[in-house]
Design a protein around this nucleic acid. Structure first.
Length: 432
RNA sequence: UCCGGCGUAGCUCAAUCGGCAGAGCGGGUGGCUGUUAACCACUAGGUUGUAGGUUCGAGUCCUACCGCCGGAGCCA
């Protein structure tokens, strides 16, 4: 990768050696005839000690020339020292400046979110943001490993779609060679086709919602993983969902301890995320709301505060199944025991983080599905290919979608999903 | 789209009843041999979001607009 420079994360293998690190100046402190620099290289932070009697004059006076975020290469001997942040420090012999940074806008002080988001391209250099995005990466890796290790085939869904998927949410419209195209809000319908071809599949990509949502749980562009399994019923689907979420959480707990510490995440609640997860019906969830004196209209969908009240009854994610069919998408299969209910499931994360999974068993009967499309005032023409799946060897099948950003926010203990994605897109932000 | 809140130095915020626009950080200058968002001294830095209005006098009160934040709806 690069032979000349050692990464901070590898210093543990170089104690006593003279090495050269390449990075950026995070901070400096001086005390007359000795000064300290904090070097950041993306893999960690290390303190360099510059002593007047041990370096050349021009190296010692470097402190007056280098500014925050100046790019530089530092050569020195690696030592362990309890006084140094991180436990290691570098006895500096030489410093080579690559570029002296202009006055850096992000001080090592508190800033407002709007200011930081305007400087998101720089903000991601700071420890907390860095830790969050590293955890995001671990979550993405664990998702891929989970499905790849279980024989799922990755099938990418298109971003441009010819028409509405669900008919409920507002889509971003774009010009497509003289006709209209829409940015996808879900790859699910395509995964249903893929499941009939590959048995068990998943897609993982960005999705887009043009809803004018202004909450801590919404972005206009977000990432979703959507598995779909042929011959799987609702119970199979819930089994998969809980095994999946347990896997992600435990992977992050074991592999990203340092990052969770940087974020000061209390992990005791995450350690409890183990199978089995509680499963309650919509009707049972409504009963919980009523017992907690929540004013709730029967048959309605749950709002953010409703979800919080429900999830606070449990110490791990809770799966709520069999919502009223009327408030769910057309493709949800009717419960054969109660046609007013749908064989769907939402998973609510603990600590008020809300819905992270939505899915269920799909309607596999051609006649019922056509009726649903008509009832939802959707153009049957647009779903011709989708209906074909019910004509040529239709089978029961199920799947769900997990929102990456909400999952990252939950595991990191963040108040807002906007910090869980490198460059968030919200109703009011399309910069940088 | 609706409801609520906030816009003061590069950044984070103060400014009492409407009465001289201030501090910390960051910048600059100087000091300090173990600092941990170091510290100490000095210093520069302002169209108080925009446009009107009330008043002897507006950062402060009123109106409209703009921007952002939080919530609702909708959803992952």
């Amino acid at each position: 990768m690069r032979k000349e420079y050692v990464f901070v994360e590898d210093l543990i293998n170089h104690v006593g050696d003279e090495v050269t690190l390449a990075g950026w100046l995070y901070n400096k402190r001086s005390s007359g005839k000795i000064w300290f620099l904090l070097l950041r290289d993306g893999t960690g932070l290390v303190q360099g000690v510059v002593s007047k009697k041990e370096v050349a004059e021009d190296v010692f006076t470097m402190k007056d020339r280098i500014t925050q975020e100046t790019s530089l290469k530092v050569t020195g001997v690696v030592n362990t020292d309890d006084r140094a942040p991180g436990g290691f420090e570098l006895w500096v012999k030489d410093i080579q400046v690559v570029q002296v940074a202009e006055e850096y806008p992000i001080a090592l002080k508190e800033h407002g979110t709007d200011f930081l988001m305007d400087h998101r391209h720089l903000w991601i250099r700071t420890p907390r943001q860095n830790a969050t995005l590293r955890i995001r990466h671990e979550i993405v890796r664990s998702i891929r490993d989970f499905y790849d290790n279980r024989g799922f085939t990755l099938v990418d869904a298109p971003i441009f779609t010819p028409s509405v998927c669900e008919g409920t949410t507002t889509l971003f419209e774009t010009e497509y060679f003289g006709s209209k195209a829409y940015l996808t809000q879900s790859g699910q319908l395509y995964m249903e086709a893929a499941a009939m071809a590959f048995g068990k599949v998943y897609c993982f990509g960005p999705t887009f919602r043009a809803e004018k949502s202004k909450t801590r749980r919404h972005l206009t562009e977000f990432w979703m993983v959507e598995p779909e399994v042929a011959y799987a019923n609702l119970d199979d689907n819930m089994d998969l969902a809980e095994e999946f979420v347990e896997y992600i959480v435990q992977r992050v707990l074991t592999k990203k301890k340092e990052e969770l510490e940087i974020l000061e995440r209390d992990t005791s609640s995450l350690e409890k995320v183990q199978q089995p997860f509680p499963r309650i019906s919509y009707d049972e969830a409504v009963a919980i709301l009523k017992n907690n004196q929540v004013d709730f209209a029967d048959g309605a969908d749950f709002g953010g505060t409703d979800e919080t009240v429900i999830s606070k009854q449990f110490d791990r994610p809770v799966m709520v199944h069999r919502y009223p069919a009327a408030i769910k998408a057309f493709y949800m299969k009717e419960d054969p025991k109660d046609s007013t209910k749908a064989l769907c499931v939402d998973m609510l994360a603990p600590e008020g983080y809300g819905e992270i999974i939505g899915g269920g068993q799909r309607e596999d009967d051609l006649t019922v599905l056509r009726r649903k499309i008509e009832q939802h005032n959707l153009p049957e023409e647009a779903f011709k290919w989708y209906l074909d799946l019910r004509r040529y060897g239709s089978v029961p099948h199920s799947g769900f979608g997990l929102g990456i950003e909400r999952t990252v926010a939950w595991l990191c203990g963040l108040q807002h999903v906007r910090e869980t994605i490198p460059f968030p897109r919200t109703m009011y932000r399309n910069y940088p």
